[in-house]
Design a protein around this nucleic acid. Structure first.
Lengths: 217, 217, 217, 217
DNA sequence: AATGAATGAGGCTTCATTCAT
DNA sequence: GATGAATGAAGCCTCATTCAT
């Protein structure tokens, strides 16, 4: 009985904890880190300030956890998409597509991950840095594989990873910040062609990818 | 006499104004907008809070002016560099080089322009947006010229402008946020090759640019 | 149990709220609205600035609530006094007596209601206006009844209400501001005779009221 | 020559001083004492803050001087009006009429004198007190004359003076604070009848005064 | 005489965090 | 576990006053 109750409590607690994370996620994304008061989070989570502080030590801790899990989720999605492809270039394509699709579906998530981290102040630079680094490295890794496989000529994959991520990031960010967002996917073919070309993939190969403009050169 | 005196005073006032802007510039860049107190600016400018408020209506006004003038200065530098070249691709090269060189010399300036704007909170998104837009458009403009001149094949220059700016931005930002910065210019040849290739410039043409890796020729 | 606890807490909270109102009441009355800092109120209430702001949104809100409740209390007292009399003139007498007695007992209350409202700045004119209007109308209402009952000849009760209130107000205010207050009630018979006479009540009727100067009978 | 210049300077100085007083008068009256910044006064006087401080030691000093001179002017006007009459009751009528006429013509002056003094904070109570006292005493003085002349029965003229002033003050104040002022003079016959009746002047005598309703009872 | 820049105390409000219940 | 009251350090801004020129 005690056993059962404590389990039930633990479950309820986990639920409440997630409620708070959820609320924080949306509130941070909508209003930004500094503009979000712990009270706002508590209200959105339908609990009290004290309740929030029972589950998290500080406001910063909430944000950090959110950053981490959100990034994890995205990275997992990308990994899954990549694993489904064989050809290195198809892998890259799949990865890009996965990122854009996720963002397109979760504007909020993107905002949190790519825009707000900076707004959170110097304290978070390490986090942000690590996050961007992680994605840049991920890209570099795939590029390295592609080079090894002979799919593309050798390049400085470290710099290229950063640049690709930056290009992607900016396109997403501009979309996030736009008053009238439009469809993020529309930019995809152009962006993909740009990125692939930048590492020496031939026009023919690019044109052969699914979704390329029909008669493309 | 009165004339002379008032002129001297006006000059001193202007000097003080600039002192404040300077102090604000550095403090914002070091600590971020939200993290910077008006008192900090005053202290750094060796004046008082009231002194700051004599010259600027609000903290925000200081930041806005800083954003504007900093962007102006950079844009002017780029324009000058571009005007010195004839060939569209050389122009692009010059522009990139100008941006990187400026940032390399003024880490602080870059931080303010590219990183902190986001930290300033939702209220500044319009400003930031406009700033990024300005540079993205600038790039798109040069790309359009290059297309018109037949130097590169047609592409969606709007998206490309954004992507280029993003790639550049990210490279700079990562450098800014790194613990051990290293030399920004080292990334330049790689980045340049990447960007030019992405819009279809031939390897030969890229290799012919000054500063390209020796063996590449 | 939870019930009991929450009730106890709510009660404590209400108590604290009133503590703050009380402290504000006295501080406003002693120093005036502008002169009173929220810190002063907090200190007087033996709590912190934050504590005050937990219970009230702004300093102005405190003042407004104070004005309202104080006026309510006075109006209720007058209404009760009036209801206890039958004859219109006796009603007027009772009302005047109630006001003066209340003020005499609570110098502070009077100060807040009649003097400080103006010190609160243009923003409060609406409030003050409404307050004075309320009392002037109250008087006018009783006068109208008296006219209807044939106890006094017809007069412009609107202007008369204002004038009566003004006379009363000034007598009270002068007493409030005097260095050596003396007894407010001493002025009462004179004031009452003045006011009643001003609306045509006969000397005989006035002399018959309780508390009239002996020899006047 | 020096002589002449210094005279000219003195004159200019006096002019400037008055300019400032004028500006202060209007600004205080429009915005209230606390809401008026010395900068506002300087701007309205078309001079600088320093200029203001050359002529006046403090903001308070300006206000005090304004109160005094304004009251002087009004008192002089009343005295003149009173001197023109013989009969005590006609004198009283003339005095009331003078006050109301002055206020009606100078809403601004009235506001400064009767409303704002309180808004200026406790520091001015002495001044305000003295001012109100002065007018109450003035009224009491005329009433004493009237009693001596046998025009009215004896009353406590001190209290009556205060009450009369209060009635007058309130009527004026309500007019000052009203959104849609209307004509102050319209209230005059009612007010006059009220006041005169209150000290035992007969209906017949009241009806005989100029401006009384034609067929008045 | 006048200017305008500078000063700095002080005001109101916000908010992350703590804690008794 | 949860609540909500309390704390107090900051933060931004205003403004009377001073002062060098």
């Amino acid at each position: 009985m005690t056993e059962r109750r404590s389990t039930a409590q633990a479950e309820k607690s986990r639920t409440r904890r997630e409620q708070i994370l959820d609320a924080a996620f949306h509130t941070f994304a909508r209003r930004g880190y500094r503009e979000t008061a712990v009270d706002d989070i508590a209200a959105a989570a339908e609990t009290s300030k004290g309740g929030v502080y029972f589950h998290f030590a500080t406001k910063e801790a909430i944000f950090r956890e959110l950053m981490r899990t959100t990034a994890d989720r995205l990275a997992a999605k990308v990994d899954r998409a990549v694993a489904a492809e064989d050809d290195p270039i198809a892998k890259a394509d799949a990865a890009l597509r996965a990122v854009l699709a996720t963002f397109a579906g979760h504007r909020t998530m993107a905002r949190l991950l790519f825009v707000d981290a900076l707004g959170a102040g110097r304290a978070f630079n390490a986090e942000t840095n690590a996050l961007h680094d992680r994605f840049a490295r991920m890209i570099a890794g795939y590029l390295d594989e592609a080079i090894t496989a002979g799919s593309i000529p050798p390049v400085d994959t470290a710099v290229t990873g950063v640049a690709w991520f930056g290009a992607l990031n900016e396109v997403v960010a501009r979309w996030l910040l736009a008053d009238d967002p439009g469809h993020l996917e529309e930019a995809y073919p152009t962006l993909r062609a740009l990125l692939l070309r930048s590492v020496g993939v031939s026009e023919a190969r690019i044109a052969s990818l699914p979704g390329s403009p029909a008669g493309a050169r």
